[in-house]
Design a protein around this nucleic acid. Structure first.
Length: 284
DNA sequence: TTTGATGT
């Protein structure tokens, strides 16, 4: 190989390398932007590298989802809401399969099962705050989790209504993380499936008012089997409790001292939970 | 109609 040719090839390689570096840098920058827009103090991560807590992040309009291929469901969704003036939203779009999950989960997969296609990232709040494209994305099957009707249509609906109508107006902005909870031992529930989808035993929702110095948080865990008219505050838990039951680490970028102040105990100051705890549902 | 879905 002549010296000239060798030099030309070297230059070509250099240009390609530079291109790859720039492209991956740009991708990482964009990914980072996305995550910062939809999360506070980092996306949830797994506390230990176990098959049931590993997930990959699906990016949607209005929310992020942490998809588990082992559970065939999202382990968390993350989104932000604020109070809105215009409370009307578009009509419910149809449910839609999500090819990114790789699992053949169709819109009919829940039919006749006794479980609702329960939204993790909610239709109303996402639509009202983030618009139509985001609303459409909440109807992806990757955002659904099997929920008993009494939970989905009543207790859970009341909680989501409280988030938008009661909690959001009290603060500038809220960060919400929500998802399923499974029994502690994988094999106890491994065959409790609806098609490919593992059926959770409960659901959590964490709500944070992300003040830089004194953030406040509420967390709830609600089981599948409820009547639906229970007081919401019966289900208050600490974030540590949610972490223990999910194996996830929420808000991983918090310092150790911030984390223990926010996550170890139930702090209800500032939320006036009692004012909404017994509000009736819309659909009973 | 404006916070959830199902099944006819």
């Amino acid at each position: 190989m002549s010296f000239l040719r060798w030099r030309r090839q070297g230059r070509r390689l250099g240009v390609s390398l530079l291109f790859v570096l720039m492209a991956s840098g740009l991708w990482q920058y964009q990914e980072r932007q996305y995550r910062d827009d939809y999360t506070w103090m980092g996306v949830p991560s797994w506390e230990s590298l176990t098959p049931t807590s590993i997930h990959r992040v699906l990016r949607n309009n209005g929310y992020l989802a942490g998809w588990s291929d082992v559970r065939a469901g999202a382990l968390w969704v993350s989104y932000q809401v604020e109070a809105v003036e215009n409370t009307s939203i578009g009509s419910r779009p149809g449910f839609k399969a999500d090819w990114r999950t790789l699992w053949p989960i169709g819109t009919g997969s829940y039919a006749g099962s006794g479980y609702d296609r329960g939204h993790l990232a909610p239709n109303y709040a996402i639509a009202a705050v983030h618009g139509r494209d985001a609303q459409v994305d909440t109807f992806l099957m990757s955002n659904m989790s099997p929920q008993r009707p009494n939970l989905n249509r009543q207790l859970w609906q009341r909680l989501e209504e409280a988030v938008m109508d009661h909690f959001a107006p009290r603060y500038e902005r809220l960060q919400v993380v929500t998802g399923p909870i499974y029994p502690e031992n994988f094999m106890d529930n491994a065959f409790n499936r609806l098609g490919f989808i593992e059926v959770p035993e409960a659901f959590y929702k964490i709500i944070v008012a992300p003040h830089p110095k004194t953030p406040r948080a509420l967390a709830f865990i609600m089981p599948q089997n409820v009547r639906g008219n229970e007081p919401l505050d019966d289900y208050l838990v600490s974030i540590d409790e949610v972490e223990a039951r999910t194996g996830l680490d929420f808000f991983p970028e918090l310092s150790a001292s911030q984390e223990s102040a926010l996550e170890r105990q139930v702090h209800t100051q500032g939320w006036a939970v009692e004012q909404v705890a017994n509000r009736p549902g819309r659909f009973q």
